[in-house]
Nucleic acid binder design. Structure first.
Length: 423
RNA sequence: GGAGAGGUGGGUGAGUGGCUGAAACCAACAGUUUGCUAAACUGUCGUACGGGUUAUUCUGUACCGGGGGUUCGAAUCCCCCCCUCUCCGCCA
């Protein structure tokens, strides 16, 4: 979440930035935050004064008792009772104010970076680069939801029987392709300097809050209520939370982690056209990269992550484009996001396969992830993450773009992982 | 699921009502010594929110798992909750 002192010191910029993100009533909310903070400060100052007096009295009473001056001690006791009541009231309003402020701050999204284009929807995103050539497919080219049936490699009906819609069963070469992609992505990340971790795929409430899924996306996560645990929507959550309540030193940085996990999303209310087949699932596999960086280096890191993801797509020989998301299309917690989309020739549309974001201090502030610098000051760090990559749409594009009369020919780079070349 | 033990600063760990924001040791950092390394010695060494000065320094409050209570005063006593560990049971 945003830091109050930053809002206070950059009030106008904050309001404008929030407006760019299409946050309604930015000005009123900012005013409300500053007002609450002001009240909070005043209340605390008063409370502190009362407590200071109480503490002083307690000491002097103790001293008087030791000296046997009981009467004087009793006199002072009456004042402490008074102070106690006052302090109780002040303490109550202080915690109320703090709670209100906290709740309000949770509703405010991150402010976008200056390079973020103004806009309301996906239409307004800016194409940064485009790579590769769109393959020309035969006339009878099929979409992946037909191909998977023809080759019997992914079975949605079976998934419905076992779990429900959006939980496909991968079979034979389909299952093998999943495993190959995961291993390929993990190996590549390791070569690029990422440290592999395998985190839990359920998380507690505190973790959900720290990376911003809660309370913003409460209804989008599967919630195991008996134990109050959430199924992760992305490995970002457990991996970033490794660094919750941590103070790092300069030499620990940068931190570059990679992890593979299944991801679970309820996708409540988002089903409809364009989400057939692998385009949208409740459970899917993803390899995620996470970086923790010093503030002045985070944007260089974002570019590095973007090039890294593009490198993967090039190795997979998939035509792609990179978008800089506009203010209205960005995630709640992000300051700058690049989306990578691959072109699916059979569906004749772009499919998002990765999203690489810099969160600046937004997550770090919730995580309490800080760095102690040489001058002994602690400051919040920047967190970044990106998919590298999410499997389903990669699979969709691989199947669709590489279909020929005599089978589906997978890219060379996967052959050693697959143990076969075509489906 | 049953029984027991325990949660203190980066770590180990002392601390049963005021002298404890917290011993000691380890780690870390800085310096001295040393041909280098090591060792030794000296010093520094929690976080948050405020106030005064802003270079440093000074200062108030809170925090010993969380919340509540007793008391003039709580890490320490009482209550509730959460979590962790060990043993047994069950199971991969």
């Amino acid at each position: 979440m945003l830091q109050v002192h930053v809002i206070r010191e950059n009030k106008l910029q904050t309001i404008q930035a929030l407006q760019k993100k299409n946050f309604p009533q930015a000005e009123q909310v900012v005013e409300q935050v500053l007002g609450l903070d002001q009240q909070r400060k005043e209340t605390q100052a008063q409370l502190d004064q009362h407590l200071a007096e109480s503490n002083a009295l307690a000491k002097s009473i103790g001293a008087l008792m030791k000296e046997g001056k009981k009467e004087e001690a009793e006199k002072q006791k009456s004042r402490t009772a008074e102070l106690k009541t006052l302090a109780k009231d002040l303490g109550d309003s202080l915690s109320q104010l703090e709670e209100q402020l906290q709740k309000l701050l949770y509703t405010i999204p991150n402010t976008p970076h200056s390079s973020v284009p103004v806009g309301k929807s996906a239409e307004d995103n800016e194409v940064v680069t485009q790579w590769g050539t769109v393959p020309s497919l035969p006339e009878n080219a099929q979409a992946h939801w037909d191909l998977i049936k023809q080759y019997d490699i992914i079975d949605f009906d079976l998934g419905v029987k076992i779990s429900g819609a959006g939980f496909p069963v991968y079979k034979g070469k389909g299952a093998r392709l999943q495993r190959a992609l995961i291993n390929f992505f993990l190996d590549e990340a390791q070569k690029a300097g990422y440290y592999e971790v395998q985190p839990p795929i359920v998380v507690n409430e505190a973790s959900g809050y720290a990376t911003g899924q809660l309370p913003d996306k409460e209804g989008q996560m599967y919630h195991a209520t008996a134990d109050d645990l959430y199924l992760i929507p992305t490995a970002e959550v457990p991996i970033t939370n490794i660094y919750r309540d941590v103070i790092l030193t300069e030499k620990d940085l940068p931190i570059k982690n990679v992890g593979y996990t299944p991801c679970f999303r309820r996708e409540a209310g988002s089903w409809g056209a364009h989400v057939r087949g692998l385009n949208r699932l409740h459970q899917f596999d993803k390899v995620e990269i996470v970086q923790i960086q010093q503030p002045e280096k985070s944007y260089a890191a974002l570019e590095e992550m973007s090039s890294y993801v593009q490198g993967l797509l090039q190795k997979l020989e998939l035509p792609y484009r990179v978008l800089r998301l506009c203010g209205g299309d960005m995630g709640f917690t992000s300051a700058l996001t690049y989306d990578m989309e691959v072109y699916s020739a059979a569906q004749q549309r772009w499919l998002e396969v990765s999203s690489v974001s810099n969160f600046e201090t937004y997550q770090a502030n919730r995580l309490k992830l800080r760095m102690k610098s040489e001058d002994k000051k602690t400051q919040l760090l920047h967190t970044l993450n990106g998919s590298a990559l999410a499997l389903p749409r990669i699979v969709a594009a691989l199947l669709e773009n590489n279909q020929r009369e005599d089978g589906i020919f997978l890219p060379k780079v996967l052959h050693p992982y697959l143990g076969f070349e075509k489906i």
